[in-house]
Amino acid sequence: MDIDSVKGLRIARFGQGEKKIVAVHGITASLMAWGAVAGNLPAGWSLIAMDLRGRGHSRDLPGPYGLERHAEDVLEIVEHVGGAEVLTGHSMGGYVAVLAAARRPFERVVLVDGGLPFPPLPPGTDVDAAMAATLGPAIQRLEQTFDSPESYVAFFQAHPAFAGAWNADAEEYVRYDLVGEPGALRSRAVPEAVRQDGRALRLDGDRHGAALASITSPLTLLRAPRGLLDQPVGMLPDELAAFWTAKVPGLRDEVVADCNHYTILLDPRCAALVAERLTGS
């Protein structure tokens, strides 16, 4: 893995292949979310992932945040690396990828359990409460501190999404996320960045829908059948996918069997399938 920085954004390149994938992580994640997928790329490919501002080693970059700002950062990275054949995003990163792909064509755009606008919230709904209810422990941990890296790892190992699914890639992803001193370690994700981006996810559906419909690149959606807490309904349920595939005829929908919102990237079998779809192999 080669590390670089572009205007304060941490980027990592996995592999040295001439064909490039630019990958965008989720709302409380980091570039290490893509490590397992990158490890499954065939020869001739490389994957470039970034820490979005307010996350990972880009946590000190100032706001404003928001999905449009992230899309601008992503396109800067694409230019910095000399262009890319493929753009992909997981979870919130899928929405960022949609906004970026609406401005610039790619040979392929792959959305991984993200990118489909949600139905509007009922009038009077507290947006922050709705976001917390959806993201659950991912939001709660941003306010927590941990005594040691091992206690942070144990927190994730107890997460329902990782029950029976813990592996070296998951541990590397978790350990990368820590900042601070022993006794007061915390996630690198900045709470205000997460709040701003979460509000945009729930309130800017019309803008995201228009961007999704405007993409001219071949467009694939890979969905996890189980959710963030390994519940039996995924973050993007069948009804939502059916609505958007009907509205955007060029959108190809595929369910990745036997995974949840996290393990679609971190489980070896699921990560290998994602790598296949990214490269068309």
Results as ranks from 00 to 15, higher is better:
175 R>S: 13
133 A>G: 12
197 D>V: 08
108 R>Q: 14
68 E>C: 04
189 A>M: 09
159 H>A: 03
132 A>S: 13
204 D>T: 09
144 Q>E: 15
78 V>I: 14
153 V>Y: 04
74 V>L: 11
196 Q>G: 05
73 D>K: 03
159 H>E: 05
112 V>E: 00
71 A>F: 08
126 D>M: 12
126 D>Q: 10
140 Q>A: 15
160 P>H: 06
130 A>N: 08
122 P>I: 10
151 S>K: 14
113 D>A: 09
95 Y>Q: 06
180 G>C: 03
130 A>E: 08
177 D>Y: 03
111 L>W: 04
121 L>I: 12
69 R>A: 15
163 A>M: 06
170 A>M: 09
206 D>W: 00
159 H>N: 12
145 T>H: 02
143 E>Y: 01
121 L>S: 09
161 A>L: 00
68 E>L: 11
177 D>C: 13
192 E>D: 15
137 P>M: 10
147 D>W: 05
153 V>T: 14
169 D>H: 14
110 V>P: 00
191 P>I: 02
100 A>Q: 13
209 G>I: 08
118 F>G: 08
75 L>D: 13
143 E>N: 12
142 L>Y: 03
75 L>I: 13
104 R>M: 15
209 G>T: 11
131 M>Q: 05
87 L>C: 13
122 P>T: 10
195 R>E: 09
117 P>Q: 10
134 T>A: 15
161 A>G: 05
89 G>I: 02
86 V>C: 05
204 D>A: 15
107 E>D: 15
191 P>K: 01
94 G>M: 08
166 W>G: 02
92 M>D: 10
94 G>T: 05
203 L>V: 14
173 Y>Q: 11
159 H>W: 00
171 E>N: 06
99 L>S: 08
167 N>A: 06
154 A>N: 12
139 I>T: 05
156 F>I: 02
191 P>T: 08
183 G>C: 06
207 R>I: 14
73 D>V: 07
80 H>V: 03
189 A>T: 14
158 A>C: 01
115 G>S: 12
105 P>M: 08
124 G>H: 07
119 P>H: 10
158 A>L: 03
183 G>V: 00
124 G>M: 07
96 V>Y: 01
173 Y>K: 07
70 H>W: 10
121 L>R: 07
119 P>C: 10
71 A>M: 08
94 G>H: 08
178 L>D: 06
100 A>G: 14
108 R>A: 07
161 A>F: 00
119 P>M: 11
93 G>T: 06
193 A>Y: 02
200 A>T: 09
103 R>V: 08
159 H>F: 01
115 G>P: 01
122 P>E: 14
102 A>N: 09
165 A>G: 11
75 L>P: 05
156 F>A: 12
135 L>S: 03
96 V>R: 04
136 G>D: 11
146 F>P: 01
126 D>L: 09
158 A>Y: 02
74 V>A: 13
89 G>E: 02
157 Q>R: 14
79 E>P: 02
106 F>C: 09
166 W>Q: 00
201 L>H: 04
183 G>L: 00
205 G>E: 04
186 R>W: 03
128 D>R: 11
81 V>D: 11
91 S>D: 13
83 G>T: 12
93 G>Y: 01
160 P>L: 04
136 G>H: 04
126 D>S: 15
148 S>T: 12
173 Y>S: 03
145 T>E: 03
87 L>V: 11
119 P>D: 11
112 V>L: 10
141 R>V: 05
74 V>I: 13
134 T>Q: 14
